[in-house]
């Protein structure tokens, strides 16, 4: 038995790529969008809303951040039995990572110098305008690279979706293995596809970091 066969590696590639596009990519893109928007909302709510709203939001966020994503997936999957696994999976990924991203946004907002807030006030800008035109643009500058790191992390968390019956790329690779009794090539190829997907993102992030650095 050869320990590596290029024929098998090439044979398994199409089905892996299909699973990558249909599950891994879709889940990461939509999940990231949910996480980026929801995370920002959470960060702003925690900063501006009265305590009786901010405190529960904070508590829920901590709860999500401190429990494993697998548990959350299973819990939601067996609670909302009429929604399909992929939809629930994307939502859970998005909400889970929103709780991480909210912390990133918070540090970005905290990093905006106090003088900026005071200047906005002195110019009698409304709070909404201050957020939109002064604080968020500056906060995003410092947070974007860190957010990107979480996107890579989410990409690598997509195999967890298999626990709620979604056939992602890794499960597809295992399927090839259980069909042929050879796992080496399919699992390796799946790993290489992950690498090929996350490496460009990290290069992009490093570039962005350099361009956006102000201080």
């Amino acid at each position: 038995m050869d320990w590596w066969s290029w024929d098998r590696a090439i044979e398994v590639l199409p089905e892996l790529l299909v699973a990558f596009v249909k599950v891994t990519l879709v889940a990461t893109v939509i999940g990231s969008a949910i996480a980026a928007v929801l995370g920002l909302i959470i960060a702003i709510v925690r900063r501006t809303a009265p305590a009786f709203i901010a405190a529960p939001v904070h508590a829920i966020m901590e709860f999500i951040r401190m429990t494993p994503i697998v548990i959350q997936l299973l819990f939601v999957f067996y609670t909302f039995t009429s929604v399909d696994g992929m939809t629930l999976g994307v939502i859970v990924l998005g909400v889970h990572y929103a709780s991480y991203m909210a912390e990133v946004y918070r540090s970005g907002i905290d990093a905006v110098p106090k003088g900026q807030w005071e200047a906005a006030k002195a110019l009698s800008m409304s709070p909404a305008r201050t957020w939109r035109k002064v604080v968020i643009p500056q906060a995003l500058r410092t947070t974007l690279p860190a957010l990107g790191t979480w996107v890579i992390s989410m990409l690598k968390d997509t195999p967890y979706l298999t626990v709620i019956f979604v056939v992602d790329m890794v499960r597809q690779a295992e399927n090839y293995g259980s069909r042929t009794f050879v796992y080496t090539e399919s699992i390796t190829m799946a790993g290489l596809i992950f690498l090929a997907a996350s490496y460009p993102i990290s290069v992009l992030l490093r570039r962005m970091e350099k361009r956006l650095a102000t201080y």
Binding site: Y78, T81, S82, V83
Partner: peptide, 21 residues
């Protein structure tokens, strides 16, 4: 209550594919 609700509403109308749970 959540658990109970989950059981009760488990109608499984998954796009009409599956039957009642």
């Amino acid at each position: 209550a959540c658990g109970g609700g989950g059981d009760a509403e488990g109608g499984g109308t998954d796009g009409g594919d599956t039957g009642g749970s």
